[in-house]
């Protein structure tokens, strides 16, 4: 019987939706690149590649954490605000506004670790609200979505912090073997998260919690701990992204850092093929999703379409991606 079943699996007729759900993002990305090769001037240059990669980096870093959160069936609206907190805190530390630190390297290291750590703690707080009190994730993370930016503004008295600290800005402007540091950071995070999701017990438990929380609990999985950890990871990712953004800008404005980032990250996750209801996730998909959205925006801008119109196209892509996903699940 297994032989017959196997033969039939091989001769399975082509299902366009299933195919699109699986490879749609990749194909869209490839088509976009081909289109640009043909029509966009100066597309095939290292500079274009750099511009696009550096712009997509922060979204991908945040979206990696978001993918894990969404895989458990949750969502994290606070990531943009956590970026602002991390972005406000780091300069205060390395500029010595809290405690003067003589050694620049030490100050920068402390700034990075503390800023990212604090963002992680706020993520843990999200997870605690969700796991301990069973508050819906969208409501629980809305708290820091609103309050987080407020905290960042209070920290800085609403002032713009500007700085010129190459040791710190290395994370946003430096290069490693000719590759921008933040791109290296992004690639490392993507690989680590993808490996974790596929090969580790914790990764499997994330998917199980999103796929059927009660079944996961009855199988002995510590559901609360899984949630605490994914929201913490999401907070840490947001913290890192916050540092990258202020390093590129040489300044930190609590009003602007990470503004709208939660929606960009969710869009990247959705376009990448992760189920928004949880239980199925792909980190590589998220990477491709973010790059697709970025490249669409670039393509439109490079060909003279205003940014406002590009937003509409971006929305269109998200709708298309979600529609294809649903069709793929139907049969």
């Amino acid at each position: 019987m297994t032989d017959t079943a196997r033969q039939q699996l091989i001769s399975r007729p082509f299902d366009p939706f299933d195919f699109m759900a699986r490879y749609g993002t990749l194909i869209a990305l490839a088509l976009l690149i081909l289109f640009n090769f043909a029509f966009t001037r100066n597309f095939a240059t290292m500079q274009t590649l750099n511009v696009n990669l550096t712009q997509v980096c922060t979204i991908v870093i945040v979206a990696v954490g978001m993918t894990l959160v969404i895989a458990t069936g949750g969502i994290d609206l606070s990531v943009g605000s956590l970026m602002a907190i991390s972005g406000a805190l780091a300069p205060m530390i390395f500029l010595g506004k809290i405690v003067p630190i003589g050694n620049v390297a030490l100050a920068v290291a402390a700034a990075m670790i503390i800023a990212v750590g604090v963002a992680g703690l706020f993520g843990l707080f999200n997870g605690w609200l969700i796991a301990r009190f069973r508050i819906q994730p969208i409501v629980a993370t809305l708290i820091l979505f609103i309050a987080g930016r407020g905290i960042a503004q209070v920290l800085t008295n609403g002032n713009l912090q500007t700085f010129r600290v190459p040791q710190f800005q290395w994370i946003g402007l430096g290069r490693l073997f000719g590759i921008p540091v933040q791109v290296v950071l992004m690639v490392l995070l993507v690989i680590a998260a993808a490996w974790m999701l596929k090969r580790t017990v914790f990764g499997r438990q994330i998917i199980a919690v999103g796929g059927n929380e009660r079944a996961a609990e009855l199988s002995g999985i510590a559901v609360s701990r899984v949630k605490l950890v994914v929201y913490t990871i999401s907070g840490l990712c947001a913290g890192i992204a916050g540092l990258v953004v202020i390093a590129i800008n040489s300044s930190s404005d609590a009003n602007l850092v990470g503004m709208g980032m939660e929606l960009d990250a969710i869009a990247a996750v959705a376009v990448g093929g992760t189920l928004l209801s949880g239980g199925k996730a792909t980190i590589i998909g998220t990477l491709l999703g973010a790059m697709t959205i970025q490249l669409v925006r670039y393509t439109l801008l490079a060909n003279g379409v205003p940014d406002a119109a590009a937003l509409v196209v971006k929305a269109g892509i998200i709708v298309l991606a979600v529609w294809i996903q649903q069709q793929g699940r139907r049969t």
Partner: peptide, 15 residues
């Protein structure tokens, strides 16, 4: 409470 529908036979069995 039992199956995780979108997971494979192997993943469900090893949960």
């Amino acid at each position: 409470e039992g199956i995780v529908p979108d997971m494979s036979v192997a993943e469900n069995m090893m949960l």
